[in-house]
């Protein structure tokens, strides 16, 4: 068990699910990063998604649990119904305060929190979705020296979320789905 050196964030909403699966499938067996996935979904449904994905990817998909250390080579999912934050000592922290952009977990909340702790070792991907969550988070990632990547709205099933982030971002790379997958194939 070693603390993650780098953090890769994936924020997605409506229309992002199958792309996220392809991204996760492309990740090499051993990486010195942690991957954190935040998908908007209804808190009333249980966490079947993690279980079926674990089987499919043949590697553990771990729910991000309160006050647990963030480890290398691990894929975490944010729990529905709670905001996910990162403590300065690089453990997770959950929060049940009001939704942000009608969302809990909110992409803005985890992006900002991770960006501040991991600074230039933070890379954030913002994908398809029907609201504006993530735009502010992308700006905060850039402010703290991290890398911001937004799905090309032309490739997004619902382009509201990526388009809105592109308007407010100062330096995000806009990538096609194929390029995003290539990125995940080459994660160290």
């Amino acid at each position: 068990m070693t603390k993650a050196e780098n953090i890769i964030l994936i924020g997605g909403s409506a229309g992002s699910y199958s792309l996220i699966i392809s991204m996760l499938e492309s990740i090499p067996v051993n990486i010195s990063s942690a991957v954190i996935v935040v998908i908007h979904r209804n808190a009333k449904y249980s966490t079947q998604m993690e279980k079926s994905l674990s089987l499919k990817l043949k590697r553990p998909i771990v729910p991000a649990e309160d006050k647990v250390m963030i480890e290398n080579n691990t894929i975490y999912f944010a729990a529905p119904g709670y905001h996910l934050l990162i403590e300065p000592d690089r453990t997770f922290s959950l929060d049940i305060s009001d939704p942000v952009n009608f969302s809990r977990p909110s992409i803005d909340v985890i992006f900002e929190s991770a960006a501040e702790v991991y600074t230039n070792r933070c890379t954030a991907f913002l994908l398809s979705g029907a609201n504006n969550d993530g735009a502010y988070g992308i700006k905060r990632v850039e402010y703290f020296g991290g890398t911001s990547i937004i799905q090309d709205p032309l490739d997004a099933i619902i382009d509201t979320m990526p388009s809105s982030a592109i308007t407010t971002s100062s330096k995000a790379k806009v990538l096609k789905n194929k390029e995003i997958i290539n990125y995940f194939c080459s994660i160290k």
Binding site: H83, L85, S93, D95, S97, V109, S113
Partner: peptide
């Protein structure tokens, strides 16, 4: 207190 959420508040 958890620092990340306290700071947000």
């Amino acid at each position: 207190y958890s620092k990340s959420s306290l700071k947000r508040r």
